[in-house]
């Protein structure tokens, strides 16, 4: 735990010294910037052209990503019911650049979301997935920089999200008929 706090101090102590870094962190740390950008990238994946089999794989990824995020969120809520970890600003003297969230610090909800998203896409489309991993990494680091998460929170959240997405992707054979049906509906509307 002391390593976790030490790492938190190392990153959070950088905050408040450089207006540019603080502004960039405030841009990435909020609930809208990265989440919306990830969703827009997923939209690009839906429409990316290619051979029929490749396009179908991309469009299935769209639904697999949604399912991964949904399942990861349920697991996260379950963990939150069992265990509550206070936020860093509740215990320590921190430099805070964001509002004070009241839910449990561990595991990090944004890290779970962003890494579930990035992993689900990376499995099928490396280039867009790599961009998503980059965004997710900056997103979660900014949460520590701004004083609302410990490093352990984001590592656990990232692992939870990535693992969920990997499991969903591995077991996609069971749900592919559902995705194919939805893609079929999209095809009838000329949107898939």
């Amino acid at each position: 735990m002391s390593l976790d706090i030490g790492l938190f101090r190392l990153i959070n102590d950088l905050a408040g010294h450089n207006a540019l870094f603080d502004s960039v962190a405030r841009l990435f740390v909020n609930d809208y910037f990265v989440t919306t950008t990830l969703a827009l990238l997923l939209l690009v994946l839906w429409f990316a052209p290619g051979a029929p089999a490749r396009r179908r794989r991309h469009q299935r990824t769209f639904f697999e990503t949604a399912l991964s995020v949904f399942i990861a969120n349920i697991v996260l809520k379950g963990i939150n019911l069992l265990y509550f970890r206070p936020r860093p600003f509740m215990r320590l003297d921190v430099t805070l650049c964001f509002y004070k969230p009241s839910d449990s610090s561990w595991p990090s909800n944004p890290a779970t979301f962003a890494f579930a998203f990035a992993t689900a896409v990376y499995v099928k489309h490396h280039r867009i997935g790599a961009v998503m991993y980059g965004l997710a990494t900056i997103f979660v680091l900014s949460r520590v920089y701004c004083g609302i998460h410990y490093p352990l929170d984001i590592v656990t959240g990232a692992l939870l999200g990535s693992l969920t997405a990997a499991v969903v992707s591995r077991s996609s054979d069971c749900v592919n008929p559902i995705w194919d049906w939805l893609i079929g509906v999209g095809r009838r509307l000329y949107l898939a």
């Binding site: 989440t35 995020v69 969120n73 509002y99």
Partner: peptide, 22 residues
């Protein structure tokens, strides 16, 4: 991200809602 900052940096949003509106 420049004009709506006063609403971005206050508590409130759940992921489900964000997804629904998006």
């Amino acid at each position: 991200f420049s004009r709506v900052q006063h609403l971005i940096f206050v508590p409130g949003l759940a992921g489900t809602e964000l997804f629904t509106v998006f």
